[in-house]
Design a binder for these strands. Structure first.
Lengths: 152, 152
DNA sequence: CATCTGAGTTTGACATTCGAACTGAGCCTC
DNA sequence: GAGGCTCAGTTCGAATGTCAAACTCAGATG
């Protein structure tokens, strides 16, 4: 960005900065990993736990917080011959974080993946997509058009 | 994304997922806040501290880690009539995280800022920009073209 | 009735974070 | 050349958060 350093103070104090506020909600490792699961469509407590290796108590606490913050909602479901349970699905607000996750993924694939990306991100037609800084006029691809395909 | 739930397992295990790997490096609140400062051009220990209110010991430790990870480099500088000190400047790898910060900012401004965004993101010509999911063919605006202008 | 399963809660050891006080290196003033 | 200043960093004890393992609970199943 255009500042040749020598800046002594951020242009916007932390309390008014969108990024800083966002970090108050999702600025810890587990919360973002949980969102990753949610984007992948994994919505159940034990499934998330199996994928992430998160301690039960921490998962409980994070899910509760994320429901409170309006990122997730508890959705009742019932498996054949089991009592009612709850899954955790993304709300609109939560879905809004797709850009953050995909930006992280892009960076991680670019800088931390000697073995290349693990996932191809395309639209339904198979056209590659990316999260990028572009002119505000450029049409955005809606989330529902996005396809994630594991490579190899 | 296109999975109507019922998914029991992430398509990619944590160890191979770019996003998850990225979180291992930057998945804590302070690290991302420090990056925010760095993007704003604040590069000195005490300036960062004044902006963020981070405890000294934590800042020391995080900066060291970020230098180790290759996100920042220590750059010597010398103020008129002072001894040599070090500033922390973004490396290319660190600059690559601009998209993540800007995506966070966009989300924070959209969902956590009743008072509206605090910063306008444009190119040098004043044309508004955004971080978004777009066709991979769309030209990306290089970071050096980006201008952040505080609103109000 | 005993057992199983998914989704938690509890517990106690361990690690990290916080804030405040202290250190240290170099420069400046007297 | 003694004392003070600034920036950058260490150290320390208290508070907080994390972890893994054990325990709980409700309802379905045998």
């Amino acid at each position: 960005m255009s500042n040749s350093d020598g800046v002594r103070r951020a242009p916007v104090p932390v309390e008014r900065c969108g990024a800083a506020r966002a970090l108050e909600v999702i600025g810890d490792r587990w919360t973002l990993l949980i969102l990753r699961e949610a984007f992948y469509g994994v919505t159940r407590f034990d499934d998330m736990r199996a994928d992430m290796g998160i301690p039960r108590s921490v998962l409980t606490q994070r899910l509760a917080r994320m429901v409170e913050e309006g990122l997730l909602t508890r959705v009742p479901y019932r498996e054949a011959g089991a009592r009612e349970r709850f899954a955790y699905a993304l709300t609109g607000k939560g879905r809004g974080l797709a850009g953050v996750i995909l930006a992280l993924m892009r960076w991680g694939d670019a800088h931390l993946a000697p073995d290349g990306p693990a996932l191809a991100v395309t639209d339904r037609a198979g056209r590659p997509l990316k999260v990028a800084l572009v002119d505000a006029e450029v049409p955005e691809v809606p989330l529902r058009e996005v396809v994630l395909r594991p490579l190899v």
